[in-house]
Design a protein around this nucleic acid. Sequence first.
DNA 1: ATAGGTATTCCAGTTACTGGAAGGTCAAGC
DNA 2: GCTTGACCTTCCAGTAACTGGAATACCTAT
Lengths: 133, 133
Amino acid sequence: MNIGDVARKAGLPPKTIRYYEDIGLIKPLRDTNGYRAFRDSDIHKLAFLGRSRALGFTIEDCRNLLALWEDKDRASGDVRAIAKEHLSQIETKIADLQAMRDTLSDLVRDCAGDGRPDCPILKTLETMPTPKS
Amino acid sequence: MNIGDVARKAGLPPKTIRYYEDIGLIKPLRDTNGYRAFRDSDIHKLAFLGRSRALGFTIEDCRNLLALWEDKDRASGDVRAIAKEHLSQIETKIADLQAMRDTLSDLVRDCAGDGRPDCPILKTLETMPTPKS
DNA sequence: ATAGGTATTCCAGTTACTGGAAGGTCAAGC
DNA sequence: GCTTGACCTTCCAGTAACTGGAATACCTAT
């Protein structure tokens, strides 16, 4: 199957699929005309990658998850460790973003947002304490 | 003042300060020896930038916020618009991450995480529906 | 004179793609 | 047979916001 059809099936842009080949995540065959010839196994891998990426795993995580997926003798503990680590990074990120959101929504609420120059948002950016300074 | 002291005062690494000069956010003077000579106004700008970045504003947002900060005739509505837009992007991102987190924490909970190959995480990545496909 | 700490510039690498140019291939229609 | 349009190929460059490192210069104190 050609890249366009694969892209539709796997839900990934052709550019991304070529990129995944570049970095060694998939190794499709080639037709005599030079076109990539994708097997079902390639398509399944691509769909797997798409889902892993949708859950926010990094490409390197995906590479490892894919290897574990292919390894019928894997230990589920290895998979779980990757997922757990990723989960904790997501939780950290959520907390960071929530702190930003809380501050920002206060600021937006308190700013008149009219034609006058007086602005609590700028005032805060001018004086706010930073964790680092 | 030299870059090292400024870095300590503003809470930003010297590299970042040089980068901010590169992209035109600040324009420190130069001593005869070629060293950057920071005025108080530069230091205040850097601190402002550090706080804006800590709230997650992009560099381009920061550039605009800085310009508004410097403009004593600004309309607070312009500031508020930037903050509001940023806030809504943060909220989108939080929602995305929470969806990932919910899925991931279910998966991590359901995976035995031992030496056996059976793994609901991989099973899900193999079969899970994607929004796009 | 030398040592250490600081400063300078410039180049490259990071993440995960995405856009675009220049060119080859294929299937359909006239 | 030829053109047209949709597809495919490779390669180069750009994105965001830095960060690391190399080679070199400077400043201060012993």
